[in-house]
Design a protein around this nucleic acid. Structure first.
Lengths: 195, 195
DNA sequence: TACTGTAGTTAGTATTTACTAACAAAGGTA
DNA sequence: TACCTTTGTTAGTAAATACTAACTACAGTA
């Protein structure tokens, strides 16, 4: 699970290629070109193409997990933590647009069991953490408790993803961080205790 | 924009292939096999592969548009219409799982300008209709009016998509219609006028 | 100095892919 | 009957793709 610096360079190059034109654009040729060396050199660092893709997913998943763990361990109220998730994600994607495609590539990874389950794990893991934050918020009174945490997590994560998707389909033309703020203004109204 | 019956058969076969293994699995060979005839026969019905993909998108978009128009024209209150959208979509996907991949394939269509803009159009069109339903609901008092319709539409559509995505990543194991009901129970609480 | 492992190179290959050329059967119509 | 259009066939091709073999430059170390 540790990567050499060269591997990380390749992971980043692959991520960018996926971002530019979907998985279809991630060819050994394009990757080698982007790295500025020959195709066979890639195979000094990764076993095969699936290995590269699975590393892209794993590397992304690791970063996300670390951040989420940090968040959960803080002393803030539940609703505050949700706000921090939005802030972190939108700023992160804003600065690293290439990563966006990876989270929307679920369908593209379908063809390989190993990859599709990696995607599934990342999403499930994140959702579980969001659910536990919501449950905490319902206990500490910062989140309305008349709704199912599981469904609320779907609403929360779905809204975020949808906003990011629109930004992506709009060729990154909007200011994503601003969009995040607008979304938050609505989320907070929907989630806070109604009395 | 009219398709022959043979073209529709091919569109459906292509949709199923995409569903099974993403766009990567949609090859002329696999498509011909599924249709039970030879590869070149495909080219009697479609100019090229892009033409097939763009027809898949267009055919899907047409169906969606028709249904949405029906909904909008009814006499129901805004919130009722949203309920009908959820019911329609979840039941539709439940019965035709193959279509699911198409709506999650935004990223895969990226590589061709013509296709990616088709996807963008479908999504934008649908969102605009949802927004206008929400605005109507805010006027007729069935939807809370202290939130921005645009953002609310993102929350609504995002939640639906996310629920469907989970179902898909979970290999269609859940009962999607039931998931739709659970989601609706939350949505209605979040959206109704708070007093 | 000799040796060894790392990370590159060039050249090449089997397979897959989208697509074309040329032909054929069959049905409708002049 | 003759002919045209439609929709299929077989055979084939150029290009792309993932990957391998064999060689090399070089840095670190015994």
């Amino acid at each position: 699970m540790d990567y050499t610096s060269r591997q990380i360079e390749i992971i980043n190059a692959a991520t960018e290629l996926i971002n530019q034109g979907g998985i279809q654009q991630l060819t050994t040729k394009a990757l080698a070109e982007k790295m500025g060396f020959s195709e066979p050199a890639i195979y000094r660092h990764f076993k095969n193409k699936t290995d590269i893709l699975s590393s892209v997913l794993n590397y992304f998943g690791m970063g996300l997990k670390t951040k989420m763990t940090e968040l959960i361990q803080s002393e803030d109220k539940g609703i505050e933590k949700l706000k921090q998730i939005i802030d972190f994600q939108f700023e992160h994607f804003s600065n690293h647009p290439a990563i966006v495609m990876v989270i929307f590539a679920e369908t593209s990874f379908q063809y390989e069991e190993k990859l599709s389950s990696a995607v599934h794990n990342i999403l499930t893991n994140k959702k579980e953490r969001v659910i536990s934050i919501i449950q905490q918020g319902q206990k500490d009174g910062s989140i309305r408790s008349d709704v199912d945490p599981n469904q609320l997590a779907s609403v929360f994560m779905g809204s975020m993803r949808f906003t990011i998707l629109q930004w992506r389909l709009n060729s990154y033309r909007d200011d994503l961080v601003k969009e995040g703020t607008l979304l938050w203004n609505v989320i907070i109204k929907l989630l806070k205790e109604s009395n």
